[in-house]
Design a protein around this nucleic acid. Structure first.
Lengths: 250, 250
DNA sequence: CGTCTTATTGACTCCGTTCAATCAAGGTGG
DNA sequence: CCACCTTGATTGAACGGAGTCAATAAGACG
C-alpha cells in the first residue's frame, strides 16, 4: 500500500475552494473539519491518508475482535453492526453505525479492535490511518481537537441504554435516535428502512425479540408508527419523543 | 476555599531524579506517561499545568452538569461519584472514580460537563488544564497518544452494565471491579471500604436497594464475602470472579 | 411448490420491584 | 447517660413486566 508522503503545510490560504472539499462528502469527520475552518492545504494533508474501501456485502466482516488496529473509518454508505461474543458464545450487539458515523475509536486503547464489526447491507467506508492522522494532528491543532471531541463524544453514549427503562421507552428512544441520525445526513427523519433484523434490535435494546414485535405492534395500534416488514414510518414524532425523553435525557 | 497558587515552572531540567517523578504519584495519568518513557523535561512541562486541589468534603460537588469544562482531573484520594438527573429529577449514578482514575473526559466534546460529580468522602484532586495539555500534546506525541488512549479506554466502559445480567452477576462484577481497581493502586484487593451508600450501588447497578441488600446477604451466607456495614472482605475471589465473568467478558 | 429463515402471537413463569414494616447506628439536646 | 429523631440498611409479602416456551404465519429463495 504505497501512500504519498505527508506534504508540508503550505503557508497561506488557498485560492480555489471546490476541489479539496469534495474528498469525502458523507463523512462527518471531514465535514466537521471543514466547519472547524480548516484551510485547503490542511484538508489536502488529511486527504492523503484517506482510503476509500468497499463495498462490503451483507454479512461480511469489516474487522473482528482482536484484530490489529490501524485505522478508524467513517461509514459512507450502508449500516455497520458492532458486537461481541460473551464467554458462552452469546452475541451482544453494541451499536449500529449509519452513514457519516465513525467506527473504531474504542480500538485505540489496546491497539486492537475490542469488538466485531459486520455489514448489515452494502457498506462503503472511508478509512483513515490512525498513526498518520495522529502524526498530522501534532501539526494541526484543529485536527487534534476534532479527534479529542470525537472520542469524548462516544464516552457514555452507551450509558443511555444502561438505564432500567421500560421496553416502550427503549424502543421509542431507538427509533427517535435513528430518525435524528438519518435526518442529520439528509435522509428522511420520518420514513426509513430498518437495516437490522428484529433479533439485532432486540439484542441491542436488551429485550427479547418477541418483546420487540409486541412493542412495535402496539406502537402501530396506537398510531405512533407504521411498520411494514422493515419499512418504518413515524406517524407521531412528538408522542414518540415524549416516550423516549427519559432515555435520551432532554 | 483558598488554594495554593500555581507554582511557576522551574526552567531547565532538574538535577535530582526523584523530584519530578514524584509530582503525582497516585495519578494513573502521570504514571502512564512515565512508563511511556517520557524524559524528565517533558514531565516537567506536564508538571507546570498540574494543580493540586482539595480537599473536597463528603457531599461537596466538584462540578455540576452544564459547568464550563476547562480541566480534567485525576483522583488522588477519596471517591468521586458522577451522576445525572433525569427529566423527572431522578438521580442516575454513572460511575465511581477511585484514586488514580481520571474524571471529566466526557466533557471535552461539548466543552461542558455532561454530569455532576460529588465527593463521597474526603477527595483530593490533581487537575490538568485541558487546553494547555492539548497544546503540550502537539509537542509531545507520547502525551497525545496517552490522551487518545485514555479517551478510547472509556468508550464502551459503561456498556458492561448495559447487558441484561442477573442481580448476582452485576453485584459480583461490581465487587470484582472495585477489588481490581484498588489492587492496581496498591490497596488490598480483598478488604476494602465501600465508600458509597447502598442506594448508590443499587442505582449504579440498576437494581433496587433492597435487591442489593438481599444479594449481599446471600453472598455472605454462601461464603463469598463478609460484609459488616461498609467494610467488605472478599472470601472467595475465584467464585466471585466466575459469577462476574459474563459481565466482565473474560 | 416446498423448504428455510425470520417474524408474530399466545400462555405461562420468574426475577426483581414495590410497598411496608423493622432494625441498627449516629447525632443532638435534655 | 438516656430518650429522641433521623438516616440508612435489612427483611418480608405481593405484584407485575418482560422472558421463555411453543405454535403459527409470512416471506425469501431455490
Amino acid at each position: 500500500m504505497s501512500e504519498p508522503a505527508l506534504r508540508r503545510p503550505r503557508p497561506g490560504p488557498i485560492a480555489d475552494d471546490g476541489d479539496a472539499l469534495r474528498f469525502c462528502s458523507t463523512c462527518a469527520f471531514s465535514q466537521a473539519c471543514l466547519s472547524q475552518g480548516f484551510d485547503k492545504s490542511s484538508l489536502n494533508d488529511l486527504h492523503v491518508l484517506v482510503e476509500h474501501v468497499g463495498p462490503f456485502h451483507e454479512g461480511e466482516h469489516l474487522f473482528r475482535e482482536g484484530d490489529d488496529f490501524t485505522a478508524i473509518a467513517a461509514v459512507r454508505a450502508g449500516t455497520v453492526k458492532t458486537y461481541v461474543l460473551d464467554p458462552s458464545g452469546q452475541e451482544q450487539v453494541l451499536g449500529f453505525f449509519l452513514p457519516g458515523e465513525v467506527i473504531g475509536l474504542n480500538a485505540i486503547h489496546h491497539a486492537r479492535y475490542p469488538c466485531n464489526a459486520v455489514a448489515l447491507d452494502t457498506v462503503m467506508l472511508c478509512r483513515f490511518s490512525f498513526p498518520k492522522m495522529a502524526l498530522l494532528a501534532t501539526r494541526l491543532p484543529g485536527l487534534q481537537a476534532q479527534l479529542f471531541r470525537l472520542l469524548s463524544q462516544d464516552i457514555g453514549k452507551a450509558a443511555l441504554l444502561a438505564g432500567d427503562y421500560s421496553s416502550d421507552q427503549r424502543m421509542a428512544a431507538f427509533l427517535v435516535s435513528l430518525s435524528r441520525r438519518y435526518a442529520e445526513r439528509g435522509f428522511s427523519p420520518s420514513r426509513f428502512h430498518l437495516t437490522m433484523a428484529r433479533t439485532d434490535m432486540a439484542n441491542y435494546l436488551r429485550l427479547a425479540p418477541e418483546t420487540v414485535s409486541r412493542v412495535l405492534r402496539r406502537f402501530q395500534d396506537e398510531g405512533l408508527v407504521q411498520v411494514e416488514r422493515r419499512e418504518l414510518e413515524i406517524l407521531d414524532a412528538a408522542r414518540l419523543a415524549a416516550l423516549a425523553r427519559p432515555v435520551l435525557r432532554e
